[in-house]
Amino acid sequence: MKIKVIAFGCLTDILGKDMMELEDVSNTDLLKSKLYAKYPDLKRRKYKIAVNQQIISEDISLDENSEVVLLPPFAGG
């Protein structure tokens, strides 16, 4: 199962891109640990995860239709 992950703002600098696909991530905790293994700098950044446009506060399961987005602090205006 492939999950598409989209990043915005300063996180695109850490990831080096704004979109990636990850294999075998069935929940958001697993997603985080995979991302931290690949991008250790991400661990020190403040960000939120949105799944299907809802910001999540605890681990939730993912399927291949999930839209997973990494959101650094907002800076509109």
Binding site: F8, G9, C10, A50, L71, P72, F74, A75, G76, G77
Partner: peptide, 13 residues
């Protein structure tokens, strides 16, 4: 409205 935009809308600069 301005405070809400700054706090809740996913925009970056």
């Amino acid at each position: 409205i301005i405070e809400q935009i700054k706090a809740n809308v996913p925009i970056w600069g």
